[in-house]
Structures are given as C-alpha cells and as structure tokens.
Write a protein that binds this DNA or RNA. Structure first.
Lengths: 67, 67
DNA sequence: TAAAAATGGAAAGGACGCTTGACATTTTGC
DNA sequence: GCAAAATGTCAAGCGTCCTTTCCATTTTTA
C-alpha cells in the first residue's frame, strides 16, 4: 500500500519528529511508514487522517495488492 | 473502534461464512470483527470497504479512543 | 421438538505493528 | 567545508491480527 505521508508532512513544513510527537508515536514509526517498511494499524491510520484533516483514502492508497 | 459489519452483512442477506469466503479470510475473523474482539488490519479494512462499495469511514467508526 | 445450520468463542502459533536504543548517512546552514 | 540537524535503518521485545482446530450455544427448518 502506498501513502502520501511524506508529501502531506512536507506541505505542512514539519519534521518527522514533530509529526511523530503530534500523533504520539515514535519518530521511527513515521519514517517506516514514509518509506513503506510497513503499513499502519487502522487506529493509527485514522489518527493520521484526522491530523491532516482528510479521509483515510486520500492518504493511504490501496491497489489490489497481494494480501 | 465500532463497526457496522454485521449490519451491512445482514443487509446483503449473507452468512458470516459467505462474507469470509468473499474476503478470503476465516469465518472466525468475521465473527471477531463483528463482535469487537479486535480491529482489522488496514488492508483488511480496505478490502471490506471495497466489498461493500463504501468508504472505510462508513463502516469503521473511530471515536477518539484511548490509543 | 429434534436435527441441521449458523454463530460464539477459546487456545496456540506465526506474522506484523510499534516501541526503545543505537548508530550511519544525508541534508541544511553558517 | 564543517557542525548540527534531520533522516535512514537495524535489532530485540511486546502486543495485536489472523490462522487452524475444536467445542458450545443459538437459530433455523423440517
């Protein structure tokens, strides 16, 4: 699954560490999501979407991937 | 997190087992989600939303829960 | 009302999400 | 060009997601 996390974060002009603090997760979690090392839990996905004020589908792009 | 899985499934008039087969997960996974034993992964949430033809936010209701 | 179908749920195991801690690499600004 | 800041990434540990197997309970139907 792709995501637009880095793009949205840079639009806001904030650092990974600041986003991590706002979301109450670790900096490594943000970096791992931006670089596609793993997908977020649905709870974290909701918090990210709410933080940026958009829907989950606008950030996380699901494309028929292999389960 | 609450969800409307049981409601949507019964609207379609299908059994847990049939929904499970359509989504390629186990019947126990459907039951566990309907009864709130755990939340789906974001990949499964996407597949469920796509199956029912609605957005994730229309099925899974996030309400500022304790992380 | 008895049999069959559907659902509930527990337990153990494997994979994934997120943590902390540490260090390497890249980018920024003087 | 150097120091500081920002980002990349690994590893170990813990909890969650999902599986299979199994049995109990509820609902449906004949």
């Amino acid at each position: 699954m792709k995501n637009r996390l880095e793009e949205l974060r840079k639009q806001r002009g904030i650092k990974q560490e600041e986003l991590a603090a706002a979301l109450e997760v670790s900096r490594q979690t943000i970096g791992s999501l931006e670089n596609g090392r793993y997908n977020p839990s649905i709870l974290l996905a909701f918090r990210i979407a709410r933080y940026f004020g958009v829907g989950i589908e606008e950030i996380f792009i699901y494309e028929e991937e292999t389960i």
